[in-house]
Write a protein that binds this DNA or RNA. Structure first.
Length: 137
DNA sequence: GCCAACGTTGGC
DNA sequence: GCCAACGTTGGC
């Protein structure tokens, strides 16, 4: 089962809002990047993703689950891009910051570090397990 | 708030 | 089809 990492600026959509959305979850819309789109399309229901706060926090803060696979994003006038639905699973006991990720040699090749502008990224099993451990999950 | 990285757009 | 200009993202 694949794992993912999805980034959001807390000012536009925060973990708190994600939790408040509850079990019905929310649409992960607004993706306008082809690489991110490819990743969205590869997601399957039941797969989990890290929820990362960019800008202010710069930390992995929680885990979300895919509850609806890729479908067209009505807010995209061009019709090229789509979205998935996700819901909050659980927060990390201790958020794993970008600084900590960068300080860990095993995570040096993460897309989060290498492709900092990509908003939806794949995470390897080793990276997933390590960040879960660092986050106290 | 600045700037580097990167994607997209548009003129040629 | 190339490439300069521009806009956006996100770390610092």
């Amino acid at each position: 089962m694949a794992h993912w990492l999805m980034k959001s600026e807390p000012s536009s959509w925060s973990w708190t809002q994600m939790v408040e959305a509850g079990k019905k979850g929310t649409h992960w819309n607004g993706v306008r990047n082809h690489q991110a789109k490819q990743n969205l399309m590869a997601m399957k229901v039941g797969e989990q993703a890290f929820f990362y706060h960019s800008n202010e926090d710069r930390a992995v803060i929680g885990i979300v689950e895919i509850i609806k696979p890729y479908y067209p994003d009505p807010s995209d006038a061009t019709g090229k891009f789509g979205m998935v639905d996700v819901r909050a699973v659980k927060p990390l006991k201790k958020p794993v910051t970008l600084v900590e990720v960068k300080a860990e040699p095993k995570l040096a090749n993460m897309a989060l570090v290498k492709l900092s502008r990509l908003s939806v990224q794949p995470v390897t099993e080793a990276e997933w397990a390590l960040i879960c451990r660092m986050g106290g999950v």
